[in-house]
Design a protein around this nucleic acid. Structure first.
Lengths: 111, 111
DNA sequence: TCCATATTTCATGAATAGATGAAGTATAGG
DNA sequence: CCTATACTTCATCTATTCATGAAATATGGA
């Protein structure tokens, strides 16, 4: 992954609504979610959501497909993997172990 | 890790100078780097660098220690690990395998 | 004490991001 | 076709971020 793509993805995720949205889509997995479902579920103004979905799409983190009157969004796991790979491999000074003991590590519940 | 901390860290990293700085510090490891060394090495205006170092510090990704006339900065690996953990565990819908095959994965050289 | 060095804080202006109502586009169904 | 639904795009305003010169602060040494 290139640095510019990484920065694009990082800034896409660094936002309350977008992070919530991304998480909801990740949870939904291959089923994806309709824009309207997300707007209702997360109580977001449809226009605001649409703008933020566009930013996530542009970063390559999600993609969309029309479905009847609605538009269904899906997470792009590959891009997220690439980002995590970039952060661990490239940003941790070639010593991934410094920053990436993701295998084990305590799994606390967060919100 | 809490969502607000994650957003703070993500936006701290989502910036050209700050990402470069963070990478340089990660490479330096426990030796850390003086602010001046980084400014010279990366050709960054000292004021600009200082502002960006403050942002990284505030996000908990680095910390500083005075050393004579200079100030030496160090990466906070723990916070970076927490961020990566948050992204994989919390954002990938409780199905980390979706986004975190960091163990294997092709290690291409990036810039 | 006085000065040079190293870095930060302050102040300011320019650029970018963010939210949202109104208007536009696409689709389904009568 | 006509209308309702589901979204997006446009236009606009506000808020935040960014970069940087000038001034302030801290330290070391003569």
């Amino acid at each position: 992954m290139e640095k510019t793509s990484a920065i694009l993805a990082l800034s896409a995720l660094a936002h309350d609504v977008r992070l919530d949205t991304f998480r909801a889509l990740a949870q939904a997995g291959d089923d994806g979610l309709l824009a309207g479902e997300m707007a209702r579920a997360l109580s977001i103004n449809p226009t605001t959501l649409s703008n933020n979905l566009k930013i996530l799409s542009h970063a390559g983190l999600i993609h969309a497909r029309r479905e009847g009157r609605g538009i269904r969004y899906f997470v792009m796991a590959e891009e997220m993997r690439a980002l995590l790979g970039y952060l661990t491999e490239d940003c941790c000074g070639g010593r991934p172990e410094l920053c990436a003991p993701l295998a084990a590590q305590g799994t606390e519940k967060t919100t």
